[in-house]
């Protein structure tokens, strides 16, 4: 699964991240922990960084499956 980042949170990853997600899915919380371990950065654990799945902002309890489009974003700065 390719994961995109928007705003300041992109920095620790240096671009989109690649990570494997099991068919049975993982929660957003687990996905954050997997990313933090793989990229050795705890920035993704910040609660102000929101997760979007298929263009909808979701809670950390939301389950993510391999076919989903997953993105993490820093708080928007507005226009």
């Amino acid at each position: 699964m390719k994961i995109a980042f928007y705003g300041q949170i992109e920095r620790p990853f240096g671009g989109p991240a690649e990570i494997s997600v099991p068919e049975k899915g993982v929660s957003v919380t687990t996905l954050r922990r997997l990313l933090a371990a793989r990229y050795e950065s705890e920035a993704i654990l910040e609660r102000t960084v929101r997760a979007a799945v298929n263009d909808e902002i979701v809670l950390d309890t939301h389950m993510v499956y391999p076919a989903d489009t997953v993105e993490f974003m820093s708080p928007v700065s507005g226009g």
Binding site: M73, S74, P75, V76, S77, G78, G79
Partner: peptide, 26 residues
């Protein structure tokens, strides 16, 4: 627009680069 439009702003200059967050006034 100043608070809800989905953008992430940064500014660049002799100081380097920094991200801009919405202000309390906004």
């Amino acid at each position: 627009l100043k608070t809800e439009a989905v953008f992430w702003k940064r500014e660049q200059g002799p100081f380097g680069e920094r991200w801009i967050e919405p202000t309390q006034n906004d």
